[in-house]
């Protein structure tokens, strides 16, 4: 069986379970098939629009949102689950520094990037957070940076006002931890009270 030939059938979900498994193993090693599969993904998804779609019953929307809410808070306590989320990662080496995390890159439909954040980690464990595109903190509020070691509690690591900022983080940043930013009352707090606007794994 030539696995390259299975790309269209795989894209259409027209392989049986064992064929699909074999093809997925092949896919992991074949860049050509990955590229072809990406190309065929669009016309396949277009077929989804080819049927007349009656409106689903409104209860379906409610059921999905309720199940999603129940599920996410069941996995682990909500706060910890949120902290564990990684929105994206970028690894790059620059001179003596390592860029360890590109936290969030939200784009609007016009392609404009809303928020970006990069953590630069020095070999001695000191770190800098560069943020761009955050709106200025409202009056009476500040952005607060947190360093969370794996399995540990958030530790306050600095404050900034928003916009484009470079923040030298207090203390050292461990590997396999998380750097996150929340909006807090002016002056900062000792543990986070809102969910992160930005978070990155280190």
């Amino acid at each position: 069986m030539d696995l390259h030939d299975l790309t269209a059938a795989y894209a259409l979900d027209a392989l049986d379970a064992s064929e699909a498994e074999a093809y997925e193993r092949h896919l992991a090693q074949c860049e050509q098939c990955r590229a072809r599969l990406a190309e065929l993904g669009e016309p396949v998804a277009a077929l989804a629009f080819g049927s007349v779609a009656p409106a689903p019953p409104p209860r379906l929307r409610t059921a999905i949102l309720e199940a999603a809410a129940a599920e996410r808070s069941n996995v682990v306590p909500l706060r910890r689950r949120r902290w564990a989320v990684r929105a994206g990662a970028l690894a790059a080496a620059a001179a003596a520094c390592v860029v360890v995390g590109l936290a969030v890159s939200l784009t609007q439909s016009n392609g404009k990037r809303l928020v970006s954040a990069v953590v630069v980690l020095r070999p001695n464990g000191n770190a800098t957070l560069r943020v761009g595109g955050l709106t200025a903190a409202p009056s009476g509020k500040t952005y607060e940076v947190w360093v969370i070691p794996a399995g540990g509690r958030p530790r306050p690591a600095g404050l900034f006002a928003g916009g484009a900022a470079t923040v030298r983080l207090r203390g050292t940043v461990p590997q396999h931890g998380v750097v996150a930013v929340t909006l807090e009352r002016a002056g900062g707090v000792s543990s986070p009270t809102t969910s992160p606007v930005v978070s990155a794994q280190t």
Binding site: L65, A68, V85, P196
Partner: peptide
């Protein structure tokens, strides 16, 4: 990306 951060 927002859903990944538990935004319902």
């Amino acid at each position: 990306l927002l859903a990944a951060r538990s935004e319902q």
